[in-house]
């Protein structure tokens, strides 16, 4: 920086003192105003502050030991917090999987869930899969018998309903919001043409229920 003439003499000194005093007074006002603004605002992080905790105790063990313990406690706290978050994340994933499974079954709104895909299976073999069925709504009633429509291919070929069975064959609707896993077995009749066959599982007495199923038949 180039040289500049400093304030001269007593008048210069007084000017310096006045400049500094003015600066400090103004700075203190600005800081207090900002802190007050922070305290007033519930949205800003100011409102979440925890009280200060001394990092080192004066327990006579020496600063190094206390500092090391404080670091260790901090690491443990951090690890525990991350572990809890990981656990929470795992639970969320488990929950998502359960929800996905539920959506693959029947739902109370009667909307078609994603298809249940079975196979591929050759004629004479069985294609087996499972679906979770959920009774989300409606009055408790007698167990509902499960049955299937014919499964048809694009060219009109079909697998008749008699080839499709369920275990258990009845859906227990006694308890509201009951969930039950149902094993669906499609025995592919001899002579069935290779291709994709589509059909639906239905529940007697529950007209809103329907589960789409696709069976892949190979040669």
């Amino acid at each position: 920086m180039s040289e500049r003439e400093p304030f001269d003499g007593l008048a210069g000194l007084e000017a310096i003192v006045n400049a500094q005093r003015r600066g400090l007074e103004a700075a203190a006002t600005v800081v207090e105003r900002m802190l007050e603004l922070g305290r007033q605002s519930a949205r800003t992080p100011f409102s979440f502050y925890l009280p200060a905790e001394p990092r080192n105790g004066s327990d006579g063990d020496g600063a190094d030991g206390a500092e090391e313990r404080a670091r260790e406690a901090r690491r443990l706290r951090g690890d525990a917090e991350r572990l809890l978050e990981l656990l929470g994340e795992s639970m969320r994933v488990v929950f998502d999987v359960a929800v996905d499974a539920a959506e693959a079954g029947l739902n109370g709104a009667g909307k078609a869930a994603d298809e249940l895909v079975l196979g591929p299976a050759a004629p004479g073999d069985a294609a087996v899969g499972s679906a979770w069925l959920h009774v989300l709504d409606g009055p408790p009633g007698s167990p509902a018998r499960l049955h299937a429509t014919a499964f048809t291919a694009h060219d009109g070929s079909a697998i008749e309903p008699a080839a499709i069975s369920f275990e258990p064959p009845l859906l227990d609707t006694f308890a509201l919001r009951a969930s039950e896993e149902v094993i669906v077995t499609v025995r592919v009749p001899d002579g069935t043409a290779p291709g994709t066959y589509r059909g639906h599982v239905l529940a007697a007495g529950l007209p809103e229920v329907g589960l789409a199923i696709r069976v892949e038949v190979r040669e």
Partner: peptide, 13 residues
């Protein structure tokens, strides 16, 4: 004296 003022002001801060 604006430059000196700013320098003194900054020094105090």
């Amino acid at each position: 004296g604006s430059l000196d003022f700013a320098q003194a002001f900054g020094q105090g801060i």
